[in-house]
Each structure stands twice: as C-alpha cells, then as structure tokens.
C-alpha cells in the first residue's frame, strides 16, 4: 500500500515530472466518469509566498463514489509558529507534534493521484499553495488541473437567475442549498468531504452527459 514511498530511488525532481507527464482525461469524456481528487488546505494566511500549509485533507471520487478508504488528513510541520491562524482552524502548536513532513505528504499526493482532476472550493488558493510548495520542495512546479465547486455553483445560480445573498457561495451555504449534511468547518478533511458531496450533487444536477470540458468551462 505504501509502495510509492518506498520508491526511494526516484530523485525528487522526477516526482513532479512523472506527475506532469501523466495524461489527464480528455475534455470530451463524461465528467461523471473522471477520477477526481477533492482537496482542502488549511493555511497560515492567504499569501503563498509568505504563508504556509498547516494541514491537508483529501479524498478521491471514482465512478461517482467518494472512497473514504483513501481519505487522508495530514498536519504539516510548519517552519513557523501557527500563530494567529489558530483562531480560524483551531490547530495549535501542540497539535503538531505528530505532524508530517510536507515533502512526504506531497510525494504521496503526486505519486498517487497523477491523472486525477483536482477539485476544491475556491480552488485558486489551494492550487497556488500547492504549486509554490512543489516548486520549493521539488524544484519544479506541478501542473494541476483544478475545477472549482464555488465557480460551478456561481454558474448554476446565475443560470437559474437566482439573486445571490452575501455569503451564498460559502461551503456551508452551498451544502444547505443542496440539502447535504453539514460538517464541522475549517478541518481540511471535513471541508474536502463537504466539497466532494457538493461536487456529486452538482454533477447529478447537470445534464447527464456533461463533459469534462463543459464542467471546466463552468468552473472558470
């Protein structure tokens, strides 16, 4: 199960290379048939250059099903104190004694989920942090193909001509609108799970044969 970790022979830079070379599903494929990796990061701030990843949570969706067996949640050793951001995600320095090395975590992520379409709610931020981290750790920027459940939701609501209230696109409000169970917020895995539920619902409520390319357009 941990084969990708024991593969110590591959130099770090090839990890990103292998990841980037893996072919992604073509745009013409039915979106529902794509493998997705739903990911959420908790951060010390919003600036990828200055701030750090505090924790990561992810889970894959294959054949329309969220596979909880592959759900992961990692606290990451931070070069600096968690400080002020603890107010938001409730993680304190003492929680990080069992924290993982970000190199290990990203290695698992990149080796295991190459060829996956990544998904996040407000994905721009997560994508930027992952790119910067891969550049810093592996000396090469990983190319992620992200779709954004927030933008898909925005598209849907626009199309239905719904007037949006403030906060309407935040994850909890989206869950309520889709009649999905709420999770505790600001926990990377809990948020990734909520985002996965939202994606499944969005897919079901799109036209049945919606292609990956269509979905990517909506998520722009």
């Amino acid at each position: 199960m941990l084969a990708w970790l024991s593969d110590k022979n591959s130099p770090l830079s090839t990890i990103v290379q292998t990841f980037n070379q893996k072919t992604l599903p073509p745009g013409s494929v039915r979106a529902a048939d794509c493998p997705f990796l739903i990911i959420d990061l908790e951060l010390t701030g919003l600036n990828p250059k200055q701030d750090h990843i505090v924790s990561l949570g992810w889970l894959p969706v294959r054949k329309h099903e969220i596979i909880l067996n592959e759900a992961r949640h990692y606290l990451v050793q931070s070069p600096v104190s968690v400080g002020q951001s603890a107010v938001i995600h409730g993680l304190h320095d003492k929680d990080f004694q069992q924290a993982h090395d970000l190199t290990e975590v990203l290695t698992e992520l990149l080796q295991r989920y190459a060829g996956y379409i990544f998904v996040a709610h407000h994905s721009q931020l997560d994508c930027r942090f992952l790119q910067v981290a891969s550049q810093r750790i592996f000396g090469k920027m990983a190319k992620f193909s992200f779709i954004d459940t927030l933008n898909i939701e925005l598209y849907r609501l626009h199309k239905q001509g719904i007037v949006m209230k403030k906060d309407a696109l935040r994850l909890p409000q989206c869950l309520t609108r889709h009649k999905l169970p709420q999770s505790g917020q600001h926990h990377a895995l809990a948020d990734a799970y909520s985002c996965a539920l939202l994606l499944l619902s969005q897919l079901k409520h799109s036209h049945a044969d919606i292609t990956l390319a269509d979905l990517q357009l909506q998520s722009r």
């Binding site: 909880l68 067996n69 759900a71 539920l197 499944l200 079901k204």
Partner: peptide
C-alpha cells in the same frame, strides 16, 4: 467501519 464506505449521491 467508515473507512470501508463509499458515498454516493442519488437523484
């Protein structure tokens, strides 16, 4: 038990 579950959205 949770780790042996897949979650599916049914319409």
């Amino acid at each position: 038990l949770g780790a042996n579950i897949n979650v599916y959205y049914c319409q």
